[in-house]
C-alpha cells in the first residue's frame, strides 16, 4: 500500500479544467518530484491533497489507503500530511519561535520541543533570530522557517511547493543541501514541486511530469532523464 495516493484528481477553475484525472503515488520513505511548466497545475495538485481546494466528484486522495479528500485542511494536517506552501506563507507578525510553536498544533507543544531544537540546529540563522518577527526575515530565512514549521509538525509526508522561488542561488543550494541531508537521516517521505529540475532531481527517487493539468510522464529519475524531450525541456539539451 502507498502512503499517499491520488486517484483521478480533477478540478476546474471557472469551467477551465486545471487538473484532469491526475493519479500519483508515494511510498513510505520515497522522495517524489513533480515537474512541469508554470501553470501546469502543480500547486493545485498540492492544494487538493492538503484540502485547500476541493476536487470534483470521483477524485480521491488516499492516506494509507483511507480516503481523506472530504476532510478540511486542518484535519488533513493533523493526520500528518504537511503542506509547505508556495511563497512561504510565514506569519509575519509572529516571532520565529512562535511560528514554529503554532506548527506544533498537530503533535502538541511538549512533544514538539525537540523538533524545534532540531530546526534551530539545521538552520542556525533561525536560532539567532528566534525572537524576531518573521516578517523581518530575508526570503531565504522565511523559506527555512516554512520548512522548519513542516519539520516541527512531525510529518508522515511533507509536500513542498517551489522552495527555490525568488531566492538567490547560494541560498537555494544551502536549503536543498540541508533538506537532502535531513531526508537521508530521517527517511522522510516527500513530495516536492519545483520548476528547477536540477535542484530537485538529485534527491528524488521518482518523477512525475505535469503539463496542462495532466501527467505526461512518470518514472524513475534515470528513466526520465534519458527521455529526449524531457532532457531538452528541463536540462537545456544534451
Amino acid at each position: 500500500m502507498f502512503l499517499l495516493e491520488t486517484r483521478d484528481l480533477s478540478v476546474s477553475y471557472n469551467e477551465v479544467p486545471a487538473l484532469r484525472k491526475v493519479s500519483i503515488k508515494a511510498s513510505k520513505g520515497e522522495v517524489v518530484s513533480v515537474l512541469g511548466p508554470n501553470g501546469a497545475g502543480k500547486t493545485t495538485l498540492l492544494k487538493i491533497i492538503s484540502g485547500l481546494v476541493s476536487s470534483e466528484p470521483g477524485s480521491k486522495v488516499l492516506l494509507n489507503g483511507e480516503e481523506i479528500q472530504h476532510l478540511p485542511p486542518h484535519k488533513i494536517t493533523r493526520l500528518g500530511v504537511i503542506h509547505v506552501p508556495e511563497g512561504r506563507q510565514v506569519f509575519p507578525e509572529l516571532s520565529v519561535q512562535e511560528n514554529l510553536e503554532v506548527a506544533a498544533t498537530r503533535i502538541g507543544l511538549a512533544k514538539a520541543r525537540p523538533n524545534i531544537e532540531k530546526v534551530y540546529e539545521l538552520f542556525s540563522e533561525l536560532k539567532s533570530r528566534k525572537n524576531q518577527m518573521a516578517g523581518t526575515l530575508s526570503g531565504g530565512e522565511q523559506q527555512m522557517l516554512a520548512i522548519g514549521r513542516g519539520i516541527v509538525s512531525d510529518p508522515l509526508i511533507m509536500m513542498i511547493d517551489e522552495p527555490s522561488m525568488g531566492l538567490a542561488p547560494v541560498i537555494v543550494k544551502r536549503i536543498f543541501e540541508t533538506l537532502e541531508n535531513y531526508v537521508k537521516d530521517t527517511g522522510l517521505t516527500m513530495l516536492i514541486v519545483e520548476q528547477n529540475a536540477k535542484l530537485s532531481l538529485p534527491m528524488s527517487d521518482r518523477v512525475y511530469i505535469v503539463s496542462q493539468g495532466q501527467i505526461k510522464l512518470e518514472g524513475s529519475v534515470d528513466e526520465v532523464k534519458s527521455d529526449e524531450r524531457i532532457r531538452e525541456m528541463y536540462f537545456g539539451g544534451k
Binding site: 485547500l52 485542511p73 494536517t77 503554532v102
Partner: peptide
Amino acid sequence: EAAALMGI
C-alpha cells in the same frame, strides 16, 4: 489558509 495548514 496558512493557519489551517498548521493544523489550526
